[in-house]
């Protein structure tokens, strides 16, 4: 059985058709990128799967159970402004652990602060961190509650391009270590080919799935390998772009 199952899902806001007839199933532990132009409804799709919005038709299910509201077993990661500015790094990571004992809280906080490379910054406030560090902090906060699915909505969009590359490598490392199912929304073609097991290519509004592409390259991926370039170009032409500037 698939982990995430989206079937015949459509979404309308008033008279605007945002998503039309989306069908997608994601395996446990799979890394799926949802790729599309701005306004194609890919964020809306992620919000529906995350339980923040109810679809107009169709269902999104996880482990066979339809999603009706947010659930701590599946955590949504926003751009780095999602961290709480009034909490320190440690306190941010502990945020979702409010039902655990102090001892367990401390264990998990230590572990995930280390995992994302923020050791030494435990008592820093977000205003003292760089954008990339804040993003890592948010990932740590999500991982600390041990979710089985992570939703990432253009998480690196606000970072500079060098930090973005580093963050992708970090995310892959964490994904391989923690074996989470990841749904990752992006409008960056290169990013999707670098990260995903499969790329779901969406059309402009109303958003529909144009094609689902397997990225059959092992990690770490060589960004100049012929197969990488070939897959990237398939996406370029699928979206209708010639990759010339």
């Amino acid at each position: 059985m698939s982990k995430v199952e989206i079937s015949n899902l459509s979404m309308r806001f008033g008279s605007t058709d945002v998503l039309r007839d989306i069908n997608l199933s994601v395996r446990e532990g799979e890394f799926v990128c949802i790729l599309g132009p701005s306004g194609c409804g890919k964020s809306t799709l992620l919000n529906i799967v995350g339980g923040f919005i109810q679809p107009s038709a169709g269902t999104a299910s996880i482990d066979g159970v339809p999603v009706t509201r947010p659930d701590p077993r599946r955590i949504f990661v926003f751009q780095e402004r999602g961290v709480f500015p009034w909490l320190t790094v440690d306190e941010n990571v502990a945020f979702g652990l409010f039902r655990l004992s102090e001892a367990e809280k401390r264990d998990r906080v230590t572990r995930y602060v280390q995992l994302v490379g923020l050791a030494g910054f435990e008592n820093a406030y977000p205003r003292e961190l760089s954008g990339g560090m804040k993003q890592r902090l948010e990932v740590a906060r999500a991982l600390a509650v041990n979710p089985d699915v992570l939703y990432l909505d253009e998480p690196f969009g606000a970072l500079d391009s060098i930090t973005r590359l580093q963050m992708r490598r970090e995310l892959l490392r964490i994904w391989q270590a923690e074996k989470k199912t990841i749904l990752f929304v992006t409008h960056d073609i290169e990013e999707s080919v670098q990260l995903a097991d499969r790329v779901v290519i969406m059309s402009a509004r109303p958003g529909r799935i144009r094609r689902i592409l397997d990225i059959d390259i092992a990690h770490p991926r060589d960004l100049s390998a012929p197969r990488y370039i070939q897959l990237r170009d398939i996406i370029f032409s699928e979206i209708g772009l010639a990759h010339q500037v």
Binding site: D71, F78, F95, G96, F98
Partner: peptide, 26 residues
Amino acid sequence: DPVHLRAGENFGMSRGELIAHVVLPA
């Protein structure tokens, strides 16, 4: 910030917990 409220909801907070841990400090 709605993002903070959503994060609180996502982590399974009740309305009261959301007020105490998100709204008040914010």
